[in-house]
């Protein structure tokens, strides 16, 4: 219980930093907020991103009932995950977070094998944007953003990816794993009721 309360305070205090970010979807002040800690190289995160979160976005985020926040939590066991997180955060600076994160998850099986992240990015970005992205990904401020998300996750505590911290009615509930939308939707409905 203490852990839940602490994670709520941490996430709430860190949230304003993301106010203008593409990493926050939906309006502020919703009754339910879902913070997703994911690793671009984790298969479960890909499954959650491309399934449950897509449906959540369409049904609840678009209608302003749920806010969705993306947090980077690259695991040390995945050699290209941190670089992918740096690219995603850098993409946010040029307004391309969603495009880049969708592409990274879509091509996960390819770049996880060969480490060629830039080949994936080149498919969805103009050459000028890709050049900007490469420069920005080396910016210490971008690295600091990734580190801040990791630190936030460690304190929550996030033990695995994907983990969602669902905040509603003043309480934060961690939910781990690639859960199906049908079950997740039932839970969201109880929080909105």
């Amino acid at each position: 219980m203490t852990i839940h309360r602490r994670s709520f305070l941490l996430s709430a205090s860190a949230l304003p930093l993301l106010a203008q970010s593409g990493r926050v979807e939906g309006v502020f002040g919703t009754r339910v907020r879902v913070e997703v800690f994911s690793d671009f190289q984790c298969p479960g995160c890909k499954q959650l991103h491309e399934g449950t979160l897509r449906e959540l976005r369409n049904e609840y985020v678009a209608s302003g009932r749920v806010q969705l926040v993306h947090r980077e939590f690259p695991l040390p066991m995945h050699p290209f995950a941190r670089q992918a997180a740096l690219y995603a955060c850098a993409a946010d600076k040029i307004g391309q977070y969603k495009t880049v994160s969708d592409a990274l998850f879509r091509d996960q099986q390819i770049w996880s094998q060969n480490g060629q992240l830039e080949a994936t990015l080149a498919k969805v970005l103009k050459p000028a944007d890709l050049a900007k992205l490469k420069t920005l990904s080396q910016d210490p401020k971008v690295a600091a953003e990734v580190n801040a998300d990791i630190a936030l996750g460690m304190k929550a505590p996030v033990n695995q990816t994907p983990t969602m911290l669902i905040t509603a009615k003043g309480k934060t509930q961690p939910i781990a794993g690639a859960i199906s939308y049908a079950i997740f939707r039932r839970y969201i409905e109880t929080l909105l009721a």
Partner: peptide
């Protein structure tokens, strides 16, 4: 002590059973 749906999500993450 928590909603049965929280436990349902834990079970669901194993991806062994239908809804």
């Amino acid at each position: 002590k928590q909603s049965y749906l929280v436990f349902a999500m834990s079970i669901d993450s194993y991806q062994l059973l239908p809804e």
